[in-house]
Design a protein around this nucleic acid. Structure first.
Lengths: 226, 226
DNA sequence: TAAAAACAATGATATTTATCATATAAATGT
DNA sequence: ACATTTATATGATAAATATCATTGTTTTTA
């Protein structure tokens, strides 16, 4: 089993505050998993009892709305942690985590993490700052949902996907969401999302290469997004 | 100056974890303020440098959206704390806090709070749980904004105001928002909000008493809200 | 107390968005 | 390789929502 010391997650997440001893303890208690595209890491309402380190891949965090549709709240990728909020609140997961590509994750039991929490101040501070960052962006996101049009939200989301996940060599967006997923990220009907993509395509703002998307005029998209 | 020991905020907030000595330190460093209806406690972008205890009154937390409209993210009232996220993130305020009624608040400087943070584990845990709760409800709120209709959001908000803030003796909602504020809470145009209130009135779900609102059929409103 | 300002209400209309229907293209299973 | 399912696309239409205009009603201020 691989050591945690060189792991990308340790490098980029709250775990960077852990010392050698703590990392060894971590290596001993962790379990690794492969999650295939489309599979759940955990589901809304489930007792998670620990946190997940994402060693590779990207997943979506979704929440079921009362009308039965899933809404994508956030995308989380390589190097990040999952399940911190549930662990601290000592509550079941509020969101489901579903792999958008094949993933490699490690699971660390709650007890272990809570131990670090008590003894390593920098670590708990890091976790708190992460959650505070999540809260800030959730508030911003909420205002966007409430105040912006679907067109603005689509433009904004395309730019976000471009800037956060980058592009392939053919300059298509690296992260590949279905139209349905894109719609559930911006909070609209799938057909409306497809129609707006067509519009953007006709306006030369983007190009549709099969199911993939190329951003042709990021500045104009940013302008539309506000 | 009044002591913190008997303060309502201490009783209901994270501060309940503080011991006698810590409360005495708190009493010594705090400053009290009266905030009149409509005045800011702090403004988006401002460096807050501490937290506020709400001894009395209710305020709205608003965020300016790029289109120039304010969106009400949350209402915060007597017994709660303000500014925890900014303090932990060590960032300027992400939201503005504006009094909806005359308020009594105390300000506690950051240094003092961070001191408790280091030494009193229960206190920092309480703060974290509060922020985690905020994150959870922000995510839920976001999904509501994205997936529910304006009518559903209005019904939900009216029930929320009723259940959270209660009613006056004439059974009008105790917390009094203008139509404009109500609209900016549910994320719609003021006229749309007014129109839907008229509809609800005609359907006998609510009664409009001047600018005040009485909920006549909470169960039906809950059904509409989903 | 009168004038001005802010707020609430409603009609008319335009725009945005959702829904339903259908067609085509791509992916999947056998 | 072909049938079946799933995803994308687009038209037609309905429903939801925003915008602009106008009026009446409070509230504030001079």
């Amino acid at each position: 089993m691989s050591k945690c010391e060189q792991c990308i997650v340790r490098e980029f997440s709250s775990l960077k505050a852990l010392n050698k001893d703590e990392l060894i303890k971590l290596s001993d208690c962790k379990t690794s998993k492969i999650i295939k595209k489309g599979e759940n890491i955990f589901e809304e309402g489930e007792n998670v009892n620990g946190i997940f380190c994402i060693k590779d891949g990207v997943c979506k965090l979704t929440k079921l709305s009362p009308n039965g549709k899933d809404h994508i709240v956030k995308l989380v990728s390589k190097g990040e942690l999952l399940g911190q909020r549930s662990m601290i609140s000592d509550e079941p997961a509020n969101l489901s985590a579903v792999a958008l590509e094949d993933m490699q994750v490690c699971f660390i039991p709650k007890n272990e993490i809570l131990g670090f929490f008590d003894k390593n101040n920098q670590f708990s501070m890091n976790v708190m700052k992460t959650i505070c960052g999540d809260l800030k962006s959730a508030d911003e996101h909420m205002v966007n949902m409430a105040q912006k049009s679907v067109k603005e939200r689509l433009a904004e989301t395309l730019v976000y996907l471009h800037e956060t996940f980058g592009t392939n060599t053919d300059s298509t967006l690296k992260i590949q969401l279905s139209r349905d997923e894109l719609a559930s990220m911006i909070g609209t009907a799938t057909e409306s999302c497809i129609r707006l993509l067509s519009d953007f395509n006709k306006l030369g703002l983007i190009e549709l290469v099969g199911k993939k998307i190329v951003l042709k005029d990021i500045n104009k998209l940013k302008k539309i997004a506000d």
